[in-house]
Each structure stands twice: as C-alpha cells, then as structure tokens.
Simulated assay, not measured.
Amino acid sequence: MLRLSRPAKIFLGLIVVAIMAFMYVPLLMVVINAFNAARIPTWPVAEFSTQWWEVAFTSEPVRKAVGNSVLVALGATAIALVLGTLVAFALQRFAFFGRNAVNLLVVLPIALPGVVTGVALNNTYNNLLEPIGIHVGYLGLIIAHGTFCIVMVFNNVFARLNRMNPGIEEASRDLGATPWQTFRLITFPQFRSAFAAGGLLAFALSFDEVVVTIFTAPPGVDTVPLWIMNTMARPNEANVVNVVATVLILLSLIPVWASQRLSRDTGEAS
C-alpha cells in the first residue's frame, strides 16, 4: 500500500479543497442570490427575501418552460430506453458483420460537440424533410434529444448484460419456459437496476440540454435552459433565474443519487 508523507497529504488535501471550492462556490452563490431582496443581484447580499420565489412559482413562462422540458425529457427517455436496450442486447448477444461500427455509431452522438449535432439535425429538418412536406415540429426536438440519450441506457444495460450469468437463462429454457417468460422472470430482473439508472441519467441529460435545443426547438417553444439563457439578458429578472437554477440544482440531485444507488445495488447483486 502506498503511504504518503504528512506534507504530501496536506498538499493533496489543499488541492482537493481548491477544486471543490471552484466547483461548488459558484453554485452556492446562485442559491444565496435566490434569496436576494435586490432587484438587480449585488454582492454581498444586503437583505434577504423570498419574493423572487413567489414570482418564479407564479410565472406562466416558467411553468411552460418546465412543462416543455419535462415532456421532451420523458419522450427522449422513452426512446432511449427502448432503442438503447435493444442495441445493447444486439451487440452483447449476437456476432454479426459491422458490430464494432454499430457500437461506435451508438456512442458517437454523446462524443460529438452539441453544436455539430444541432446543426446536422437542423439541416435535416429544414432542408430535407420540410421541402417534401414533413414538419417534425415538437417531435423533432424529442428525437434530437433521444439521439444522445440512447448512449446512457446503452452503456448501463450493456455493462450489466456482460456481467450476467447466461446459464440461468439456459436453465429457464431447459425447464420449458417460453422466451417471453424467460425474459420477464429471469433476464429483465437481472438488468432492471441498470435499465432504471440509464433512464434516470437520460432524463437528466435531456432536461438541461441547451445547445441541440437551440437548433431544433420549434418557434415559440422554450425549455428551461432556453428560458434561462433568454432571461439572463434582462438583469432585473436575474434573481428569478437564480430561483429556477436553485430548484434545478436540488432536483438534479435526485436522478444522480438514484442512478448511483441503482448502479451500486446492481454491482452488489452481481
């Protein structure tokens, strides 16, 4: 076991503290400014108030943006759960020509810069589909988010399938179970946690996506990130943005915590 000297431990501890401060102090300032009574945020905060919380929760644009984000994230997650799981099974259970290429193509959207994906989809929607009478509209935004959410489900399910014991499924078939019964009673329970963890991560990724959304959102449709970006240009509404951002910080903890918990449970079960 590697043993560090006391000065080395202190030095590494200071580095960790500096990194954590760099990451989380700005988030803490957002939370504090959400209670800033001033119309235009000032620092240090002279007076605290909850008035901006009341404004945010009664704002119609905020409610519409949240509704759009939830709807798009649910749609993208549904696409990711179905396609990500199917691709994971195909690549893990079958050997076929072009298998490595398919694996690369599934992972590629999450590695590409968002602006590249956004421009590509925008060109496809506007220059290819619309001239032949296909107007994707809201569905196009959901599909756009689904393209990079698939990899979240795929990675989780594929990793879990690689750790599963195929002998259990073979025993189920030998005992007379149909393929559907084997999947429902034996296979799915074994990767269910990874399936749910991937879905939660896909939802979180879609909910706060902004770059692809800029290029693919229909006119007049705002998601929460788009609303925040547009509202930040109006300084007198900055504290309302801080309120919404604070709520998002708190809500983001839920899928991340649940995903980690599910992944840990999956690892323990294997």
Rank of each mutant, 00 (worst) to 15 (best):
I186R: 05
N155C: 15
L161Y: 01
Q181R: 11
M164N: 11
I150H: 07
F148N: 07
Q181I: 03
N155P: 11
I150P: 04
F183D: 00
V157D: 07
V153L: 08
S172I: 01
G167I: 00
V151H: 01
R173Y: 13
R160E: 15
V153K: 04
R184I: 07
N165C: 01
I150D: 01
V151Y: 02
L185A: 14
M152W: 11
E169Q: 06
P166D: 09
R184M: 08
P179R: 03
I186M: 06
E170T: 08
A177R: 05
S172C: 03
R163G: 13
I186H: 04
F154T: 01
M164V: 10
W180G: 12
L185E: 15
R160F: 14
S172L: 01
F188C: 10
F154R: 01
F148I: 10
A171Q: 02
F148L: 05
Q190I: 09
A171P: 04
Q190G: 09
G167V: 01
V151Q: 02
V157Q: 08
F148R: 04
P179F: 03
R173Q: 15
M152E: 04
T178H: 12
T178N: 13
N165H: 03
F188S: 08
L161H: 02
F158M: 13
E170Q: 13
A171R: 03
L185F: 12
V157H: 06
E169S: 12
T187D: 15
F154P: 05
Q181Y: 09
N156V: 09
R163L: 14
P166M: 06
V157W: 09
G167H: 03
A159C: 14
F148T: 07
G167T: 06
R173N: 15
M164R: 01
Q190W: 07
P179Q: 04
F188W: 12
T182N: 11
A171I: 08
G176P: 08
Q190S: 11
E170L: 06
I150V: 12
Q181G: 11
F183M: 05
N162A: 15
V153Y: 04
F148H: 05
A171C: 02
T182E: 12
F148D: 04
F183V: 02
D174K: 01
T182R: 09
F154Q: 00
N162R: 12
R163T: 15
T178E: 10
S172Y: 03
L175C: 07
M152P: 00
N156T: 08
S172R: 00
R160Q: 15
F183C: 00
E169W: 04
D174R: 01
E170N: 10
V157K: 08
N155T: 13
R163V: 08
P189G: 00
A177S: 14
T178I: 03
F188D: 06
A171N: 00
F158D: 11
L161A: 11
N165I: 06
F148W: 10
I168A: 07
I186W: 04
R163Y: 12
G167P: 05
F154A: 02
N165T: 00
A159W: 08
R173V: 14
F183H: 10
L185C: 12
F183Y: 12
A177V: 00
N165D: 15
R163M: 15
L161P: 06
F148V: 09
V153S: 05
F154N: 05
R184G: 09
I186E: 08
L185V: 12
L161I: 13
G176Y: 08
V157E: 02
M152A: 00
N156E: 14
F188L: 14
W180P: 04
A171L: 02
C149Y: 07
N165P: 07
